[in-house]
Design a protein around this nucleic acid. Sequence first.
DNA 1: TGTCAAATTTGATCTGAGTCAATCGACTTT
DNA 2: AAAGTCGATTGACTCAGATCAAATTTGACA
Lengths: 237, 237
Amino acid sequence: MRASVVTIEPNGHFCSECAVRGLAVCSSLDPAELREFEHLGRRVHFATGETVFSEEDITTSFYNLLEGVMRLYKLLPDGRRQIVGFALPGDFLGMNISGRHNFSADAIGAVTACQFAKAPFGRFIEDRPHLLRRINELAIRELSQARDHMVLLGRRSADEKVATFLLGWRERLFSLKGSSNTVPLPMSRQDIADYLGLTIETVSRTFTKLERHGAIAIVHGGISLRDPARIEALAAA
Amino acid sequence: MRASVVTIEPNGHFCSECAVRGLAVCSSLDPAELREFEHLGRRVHFATGETVFSEEDITTSFYNLLEGVMRLYKLLPDGRRQIVGFALPGDFLGMNISGRHNFSADAIGAVTACQFAKAPFGRFIEDRPHLLRRINELAIRELSQARDHMVLLGRRSADEKVATFLLGWRERLFSLKGSSNTVPLPMSRQDIADYLGLTIETVSRTFTKLERHGAIAIVHGGISLRDPARIEALAAA
DNA sequence: TGTCAAATTTGATCTGAGTCAATCGACTTT
DNA sequence: AAAGTCGATTGACTCAGATCAAATTTGACA
């Protein structure tokens, strides 16, 4: 799956055929702009566990996630970690005002992204307010998600956290791959714990408890919702 | 303190003389634009405890906070509350993509704000990309603060939460009113608890403990930092 | 198929923060 | 100045989730 196809595009690909066209920042561009945009980004790959950028790194690039899942996190000096989000295809990463990334990002499984050098991308936006509007829209949506997550971290019990996570993750995958009662979980228990502000043991015990009560089944690589209404009741509480 | 001064401005005031000019969204406007902008907003007042807007309300206005402090919060169905932030002069409130507010806001003490009707404000932005860029900048800054707060809520102890809060609040007031080791706290203990994901009792006990250890003094209407280095050590941990 | 190493689950115990219940002040109101 | 109110503090006790410590399962690879 290395870059291999030779085309006239520096990207090696056409934006017009892109899987996340319609979801991502580029949904705001018309066909003519899109052809120009194609020359701005290049397709990059990251292997499982590879770090795309680290907190405090000077921002040199922005990324548009095309395939795979990434974990976005912050570390405390003593190593405690808080995952501030998981990125999925269509997500746009790297915006900040300090010139430095304010969180770290690494690949969970193989990842493909569209990489843009900061300066030319900035220039491209300059005279395209609709692209800026699109970026603003994505930022505002993320802000809303961040506030929801604060409520979860500050005010919900372990059971509620886990139930809310399962439904939220299913919902996000739904808009990409369609509905299913089986929720694939590509991230580890440690990742889930660090996202929910819990320990790995509590996450594991909560899954086990929900399974004993017949609400879910723990399947290979994910969770199957056996009694979605029950999980929804827990998440709503 | 009701609206009283009569001038030719619908606002009753001049943006060019505004206290938050330079801090707020309007910092991106040139003098000519500013005069036009003046006709867009009107000055509104809110009394202590008054609600400016509620979560799920349809967004009809945006607000630029001029004076006072507001609490921004979300409620769970059973009444648990998470304060997602405190707003200070210069903060811009009401942006969302759903057309509904995604949190509630009410006044802590008397508040003055500049209110903009959604539609005309949207039209004003339309052909002024620099204003859009400014709004985007504010959103991205807030997003960064939101992520920092997630770390606090998910991964820090009560002591660390309280210490981090005191320093962060002092820092925000610093950019408005200059430095001081006495940190005014206009919000109640309940507000602080709901901001930090703690109970009122834990906040109170933590203040008392810090005071016993000589790190702070609990003064009327706020906290005096007696040993800032100690508080900083706690917050850094 | 067997051997590690890592991830996950499970169990026993501990503890930080929550809960419940009085006080204690600081302001109002009378 | 007495009474009432509301927020803040303090104390006693509890408990949800953390910590510590094994098992157990899973996956990679020889």
